[in-house]
Nucleic acid binder design. Structure first.
Lengths: 160, 160
DNA sequence: TTAAATTTATTACAGCTCAAAGTATAGAAG
DNA sequence: CTTCTATACTTTGAGCTGTAATAAATTTAA
C-alpha cells in the first residue's frame, strides 16, 4: 500500500508550493510595493465595485480579519477608502481611490514568469489535468464542505 | 486562447489550498499545541538525528531564519536543545529532548482526515495524476531552478 | 600572518494569517 | 421601550514567513 508515501509527498509538494508563492510575493513587493494579497484585494474591489469586507473576504479566500488588516494598510497608503453604509451602518464599503487605480496598473503578473511560460508551453490537455488536480486538492482540503461536490467543471468562460 | 483564464484559476485554487493548509495548522494546534511547521521541524530532527539549521531548512522548505524562530519556540518549550558544533563553532546542531520525542508521539496527521479519506478513495492512477500535477506545479513555481528537470519519478520507495 | 571572502546562524523588521474577543448596529420579541 | 439575538467589522494576540543586516567562525588569498 503506497498511499502513506503518497500523502507524505503531497505534503512536501504543498509546502514547496506555499513557499514559492511566498517568495513570489516578496518579488512582487520589490517590483511594485504591494504584496500579492494586497493586490488581490485591490483587484477584487476593482472588479466588484464598492464591496463589503465580507464579499472581499469570500472573493480572495481570506478571513474577514485578514482582509481588515490588509485594508488598513491600503487605506493608510490612500489606495482605498472606506465608506460606511448609509442604511446599515455596520457595513463598510471599500472603494478604490484614483491612486489605487493607478497603482493597480503597475502591478506585475502574480505568478512568476517562469511558471507562466512553462504552463503556457504545456499541451492543452496537460493544462487541464494540472488545473483539475489543483481543483480536486482544493476541494478535498476544504474541511467545511463535506460533500463530494460537482467537480470537473473547469473551463468557466469568465473574464480576465 | 484560454490560458489566461487557466492561470487565473490556478491562482484561485492555490490560494484556497494555502488557506486550507493554514486552517488545518490551527486545528492541529488545538489538538496537540504545535503548529504544522513546528511538527515538521521536530520530525525532521527526529529523522535526521542531530542536524544543522541549514539541513532542517532544506528538508522542510523554509528559510534559515524561519527555522531559527521556530527552533527558538521549540527550545523555549524544552522540545529541542541546541548544541554548538565542536569542530566548527558556527554550526548549531538541533537535538530532540525526551520531552520532544514524547510530544511527537501525540501529533495528529498533518493533513485533514477528510483529505486523507478522499485521497485514499481515489483510484491509484488518480492519486498518481494528482501527485504528478502537484510536483509539476512545485517545479514550475520554483524560480531558482531554471531547468526543465527530470520530473516523472513519483513513487520513490521511501520510509514513512 | 593578516586581510578578504565565505559560511552559518541570529536578530530586526514588516507583513500575512487566523481565532477569539470586542464594538457597534440592526432587527425581533416582549 | 427594553432586551435578546444576529450581523458586520475591528482589535488583539500569537505564530509563520522572508529579506536584510549582523555577528561569529572558518577558509582562502596575499
Amino acid at each position: 500500500m503506497s498511499t502513506p508515501q503518497h500523502l507524505h509527498d503531497v505534503l512536501v509538494h504543498l509546502r514547496r508550493i506555499i513557499r514559492a508563492t511566498d517568495l513570489q510575493s516578496k518579488r512582487v513587493v520589490k517590483a511594485c510595493g504591494l504584496t500579492i494579497p494586497q493586490i488581490m484585494v485591490l483587484r477584487s474591489i476593482e472588479e466588484l465595485g464598492d464591496v463589503t469586507v465580507r464579499r472581499i473576504s469570500d472573493s480572495v479566500s481570506l478571513s474577514q480579519a485578514t482582509v481588515t488588516t490588509i485594508l488598513n494598510r491600503l487605506e493608510d497608503r490612500k489606495y482605498v477608502e472606506r465608506v460606511r453604509g448609509q442604511k446599515d451602518k455596520r457595513i463598510v464599503n471599500a472603494r478604490l481611490t484614483d491612486l489605487g487605480m493607478q497603482i493597480l496598473e503597475t502591478t506585475p503578473p502574480l505568478l512568476h514568469e517562469k511558471f507562466i511560460n512553462e504552463f503556457d508551453a504545456l499541451e492543452g490537455w496537460e493544462q487541464t489535468q494540472v488545473l483539475s488536480s489543483l481543483q480536486r486538492i482544493a476541494m478535498m482540503m476544504d474541511a467545511e464542505s463535506l460533500d463530494a461536490a460537482p467537480l470537473l467543471v473547469i473551463n468557466s468562460p469568465d473574464a480576465q
